[in-house]
Design a protein around this nucleic acid. Structure first.
Length: 393
DNA sequence: CTTCCACCGGAAGTACCGGTAA
DNA sequence: TTACCGGTACTTCCGGTGGAAG
C-alpha cells in the first residue's frame, strides 16, 4: 500500500529528531531576530527619522549605505515593521512596502510591487507604466495615510533602468493632497549617488545612514545570539563560532555569509551523525556553499551561455587562458556539432561578460598592443570540475 | 612618436512571447 | 477578436581604444 510507505517515511522522519538543531529557522538569512546586536545606533537613527510619521508628518527620505550582510535590510525591515505595528495600535494610517529592486528588477514591476502593498492588484504585464503609476497615486489619495517605501539595492536598479522612477517617487508628494510617501533607499555602492540626478540626490539623501562592516568580534556576538537559540546546548562551541566569524570577517564582515556557514556546518554534522559541530564541518560547509552556488548557476543557464561556457572550459584545459576570439571559434564549432545555429560574436562577447558577472569565470579587458584589445578569460581552477560537471546539454 | 590590431561596447532595430483591455 | 505593452534575446552597424611593435 502506498499510504503505508508514506506513513513509514513520515514516522521515521519525525522519530529521528535532530540532536543538532533546536530551531534551524533562526539561522536563515531572512529571519529577523528580536534584537539586532551592534546595530542599536542605526536603528535609533532610522527610527528617529521616521517616527514623526506617527504624528502625521512626512518623514525625510533616507539613504542607507553599507556592504552586503551589514544588516541594512534587517534594520530597515525591523524599523518599518515596528512602526507599522505601533501605528495600527495608535490608529494612525501607516503602511510599508519593501521591494528588493534586484529581484524585482524592472520599473514596471517595482511600481506594481509598491502599489500591491496598498492592496492594489496590478497585472504582471499589459498596461502602461504611467497607468500603474496613476493607479498607485489614486489609491494613495483615497487611503490618505503615510506610505513608507523601502527600496533595497537601488544602485543595482538605477544602473539598469536609470533614475526616472526615483525622480517620480521623490516628487510624488507634490501631487498628493492627503497621503504622503517616504522613501528609504538601500545601497551597497557608496559611489552610486554621484551619478544620480541632482534633484533626486538632494531629495533622497535628506538623511543618510552608513552601516559599517561588522568586525570579527561583532560577528561573533551575532552568531552567538542566534546559535544559542538555533542549536541544542553544547553542540556548537565558542571556538566554532569564532572560526565562522573570522572566515566571514575576511569577506568584508558579511553576516549573511557567517550565518550560512554556521547553518550548513550544522547540516553537515547532522548528516554525518555527529553530535557536535567541528571545524572540519565548517570547512566542508565553506566548500559546499561555493560549489552549490556554482552548480545552481551553471545548471540554470540558457542554451547558448552553456555552449559558451563549455567552450571556455575546453580552452581552459588546453591552455589555461583564452580570449574572446578563441572562445568564439570554439563555441562556433561546438554549436555546429550539436546542430545549433551559432550566434554572432557581438552577442557572445555579451554572454562572456554576463558569465563573468555571475562569477563563473574571470574576464578582464586587456590591451595587448599590436595584438589588439580583448577579454582575458580564465576559470578559477577550483571550480573547473564543478562547472564541467554541471554543464548538461 | 605613430600605427594598428582585435576586439569592446553603444545605438538602433527586429522578432517574439506572455500578458491586459476593450 | 484586435490593439497594445513591456521584456528578452538577438542582429547589424560602427565609432572607439590601450599599448606593444615598428
Amino acid at each position: 500500500m502506498a499510504s503505508d510507505i508514506i506513513d513509514e517515511i513520515i514516522e521515521s522522519r519525525l522519530k529521528k529528531k535532530s540532536r543538532i538543531f533546536m530551531n534551524k529557522e533562526i539561522l536563515h538569512p531572512d529571519y529577523i531576530p528580536e534584537t539586532l546586536p551592534h546595530r542599536e545606533k542605526e536603528i535609533r537613527k532610522l527610527a528617529e527619522i521616521l517616527v514623526v510619521a506617527l504624528k502625521g508628518e512626512r518623514p525625510s527620505n533616507v539613504l542607507i549605505y553599507g556592504l552586503t550582510g551589514t544588516g541594512k535590510t534587517a534594520v530597515a525591515k525591523y524599523v518599518s515593521r515596528r512602526l507599522a505595528e505601533k501605528a495600527s495600535a495608535l490608529n494612525t494610517r501607516l503602511l510599508h512596502a519593501y521591494v528588493n529592486t534586484r529581484k524585482v528588477d524592472t520599473t514596471y514591476r517595482v511600481i506594481a510591487s509598491i502599489a500591491s502593498s496598498l492592496g492594489l492588484r496590478i497585472p504582471s504585464t499589459g498596461i502602461a507604466i504611467s497607468e500603474v503609476y496613476r493607479r498607485y497615486t489614486r489609491a494613495l489619495e483615497n487611503w490618505g495615510g503615510l506610505h513608507i517605501v523601502v527600496l533595497d539595492e537601488i544602485d543595482y536598479y538605477v544602473r539598469r533602468e536609470g533614475d526616472d522612477l526615483l525622480y517620480k517617487l521623490v516628487r510624488i508628494n507634490e501631487e498628493l493632497e492627503k497621503a504622503r510617501v517616504a522613501i528609504v533607499g538601500i545601497t551597497n555602492d557608496i559611489n552610486f549617488v554621484e551619478n544620480l540626478d541632482p534633484r533626486v540626490r538632494s531629495s533622497l539623501g535628506e538623511e543618510e545612514i552608513v552601516f559599517p562592516p561588522y568586525d570579527a568580534e561583532q560577528l561573533y556576538d551575532i552568531l552567538k545570539q542566534r546559535a544559542d537559540k538555533a542549536f541544542y546546548p553544547g553542540v556548537v562551541s565558542s571556538k566554532i563560532i569564532s572560526y565562522c566569524a573570522a572566515l566571514a570577517a575576511r569577506e568584508h564582515g558579511d553576516a549573511r555569509r557567517a550565518l550560512d556557514l554556521l547553518r550548513v556546518a550544522g547540516e553537515i554534522a547532522e548528516r554525518e551523525g555527529s553530535s557536535i559541530v567541528t571545524i572540519k564541518h565548517v570547512k566542508k560547509a565553506q566548500i559546499e556553499l561555493e560549489e552549490g552556488r556554482v552548480f545552481q548557476a551553471v545548471s540554470t543557464l540558457p542554451l547558448h551561455p552553456k555552449l559558451v561556457l563549455k567552450a571556455i572550459v575546453e580552452l581552459m584545459k588546453e591552455k589555461g587562458t583564452s580570449t574572446t576570439g578563441e572562445v568564439y571559434n570554439k563555441y562556433f564549432k561546438i554549436a555546429l556539432e550539436y546542430g545549433i545555429e551559432p550566434l554572432t560574436q557581438r552577442r557572445i562577447s555579451e554572454i562572456i561578460t554576463q558569465l563573468d558577472m555571475i562569477g563563473l569565470i574571470n574576464a578582464v579587458v586587456v590591451s595587448r598592443g599590436r595584438h589588439g584589445k580583448t577579454k582575458l578569460i580564465k576559470i578559477n581552477s577550483g571550480l573547473l570540475d564543478v562547472i564541467e560537471g554541471a554543464i548538461k546539454l
